[in-house]
Write a protein that binds this DNA or RNA. Structure first.
Length: 136
DNA sequence: ATTGCATTGCGTCAAGGAGG
DNA sequence: CCTCCTTGACGCAATGCAAT
């Protein structure tokens, strides 16, 4: 697990490593809320979309026609704001979860590619040795 | 035990994109 | 145009950890 360096206490961790924001990756999301899936060596991770759980007592907006007094209007505005904040709170949580999963996925991919690289270097070395002995 | 810095996670705001 | 969703950015609190 890599640790964030101080200059990026806020914002995109990946920008420190890559110079890019994570949403700027060359493989664009295939759909909103999706991130580039790993290819080849590893399974593409899937984004689950949990059903939003509104707390009990949160009801959907009343039709505007039923509101009259300024007090009712103010209450409606407050209720709408609280609902918006609640939804955004959950959206932010989900967004962070996906981001962590994405970073983990990239870290796995780095590990796989490093192993592949090592194997190929060893293979090349073996072939070179073979070639040298034949040439003698 | 205390202190200071780094890291992490959260809630909120704001901007921008997508869909109706 | 309006509404909703997504996500970068910010501020804050909690926690970890090394230095003293």
């Amino acid at each position: 697990m890599y640790k964030m360096t101080k200059p990026s206490v806020h914002g995109s961790c990946l920008s420190v490593l890559t110079g890019l924001f994570w949403t700027d990756f060359s493989l664009p999301p295939t759909s909103p809320g999706d991130y580039p899936a790993a290819t080849g060596d590893m399974p593409a991770y899937q984004i689950r979309t949990p059903t939003t759980t509104l707390p009990q007592g949160v009801v959907m907006a009343a039709s505007p026609g039923t509101l009259h007094s300024p007090q009712q209007m103010a209450e409606e505005a407050t209720r709408k704001r609280e609902l918006r904040l609640l939804k955004n709170r959950e959206a932010a949580r989900e967004c962070r979860r996906k981001k962590k999963e994405y970073v983990k996925c990239l870290e796995n991919r780095v590990a796989v590619l490093e192993n592949q690289n090592k194997t190929l270097i060893e293979e090349l070395k073996a072939l070179k040795d073979l070639y040298c002995h034949k040439a003698e």
